[in-house]
Design a protein around this nucleic acid. Structure first.
Lengths: 200, 200
DNA sequence: GACCGATGATCGGACGACCGAGTATCCTGG
DNA sequence: CCAGGATACTCGGTCGTCCGATCATCGGTC
């Protein structure tokens, strides 16, 4: 993280080293692709655009969160816990919701635990599973972080209309591309809708 | 990287451990956001969708490239060099085009060099700069990799129409969000800033 | 009740990207 | 000609993610 420019006002421009920008590297890449008759130029353009856009948003978000001692990954985990009824979830559940690898969850929770924002508890009945429980400090910080995230619009420079259109396209992408269900079980239980209820 | 599911056929489903999917964690997050009246729900949804989508595409791409011993970062660098007239570019140029931090370029070129795909040369006139030069092996591998990338459509599950729409939106995002022109203006203005503490 | 395939979490290792610093080298204004 | 700032690259350290493998536990089956 550390390139691009912070898209949003809020802060005074922090003097930092960054990859100097070129006019449009992506358009240039696409031009090359088409000129040379390489395969799937549109997909190529879409993927590279996707990666750059994510990079930009991610950088903006990480930058906003850093003063609070959080990363986006940890912030997400914290919010997830704060949404749960009891303030705690099995690590496996966290990974499932956040779509990250089990080892990443272990990692993230390690950090949050060191920071005193989360605690590890035993699961009452299943001794394999560990529960991550948000602490009062964790809740407090999550709230402050959410305020900050709102100020920078989550690193999303588009206005709500465009952002909504983006969500539509990306939802389609995720659906087509593998964000697929192992959810048969889950789904039937929860009463059919894609927008499932609170899963605990 | 190992989450999601590989959206494309090509390989036989490698039995691997992956974050088990849940129906739509993102829709759920948004529901929570709106229910609780938190700030900027649309931006939140767009950013999280962007990150997941990138993650999916990235995983698909990395997975396709791995058998060739390449990562997407290295593949991009290789293609960039292969597009240049002489097959070599200053490292700074590479970073600029690929929008990555100088240290990342050093890193990437180190790896490519170890693999014998790229060579480091002296710049004829400027002794500060190092040229990365693609080797014949590098060209050959880049070509094979491009074929593979075509087969998996660069990890892009959308069809060309949707992909094109996505490119349009993301281009707007990048334009609005900081993929901005070169920085001389900004630079000069910034000099007065006190120790850049970007506290909000 | 014992077996054996799933499941949950962790460890060690690898990558990519970043930041902060530090060393050369260029270049320009006085 | 030289000082001082800009530029190019590199090193050391952090973070997040993934993979492969390991260990304990669960749970269904025979």
């Amino acid at each position: 993280m550390g390139g691009g420019r912070r898209p949003f006002a809020a802060q005074p421009p922090p003097r930092r080293r960054e990859p100097t920008r070129q006019l449009d590297a992506l358009a240039e890449a696409r031009r090359q692709w088409e000129t040379r008759g390489l395969a799937e130029p549109v997909a190529m353009a879409a993927t590279t655009a996707l990666m750059r856009a994510q990079q930009l948003a991610s950088q903006a978000v990480e930058r906003a969160l850093r003063p609070l001692g959080l990363s986006f990954a940890r912030y997400e985990a914290l919010m997830l816990l704060s949404f749960s009824r009891t303030g705690s979830l099995p690590l496996s559940k966290v990974g499932e919701r956040l779509l990250v690898h089990p080892t990443s969850v272990t990692n993230t929770v390690d950090k949050l635990e060191q920071q005193g924002l989360v605690r590890r508890d035993r699961h009452p009945s299943d001794r394999r599973t560990t529960l991550a429980t948000i602490t009062p400090d964790g809740r407090a910080l999550a709230q402050r972080a959410t305020a900050v995230m709102g100020e920078v619009r989550f690193g999303m420079p588009l206005d709500d209309d465009d952002a909504e259109a983006l969500v539509t396209l990306l939802t389609r992408l995720r659906a087509a591309g593998g964000d697929a269900p192992d959810a048969h079980v889950l789904r039937s239980v929860v009463s059919g809708g894609p927008a499932a209820q609170e899963v605990q």
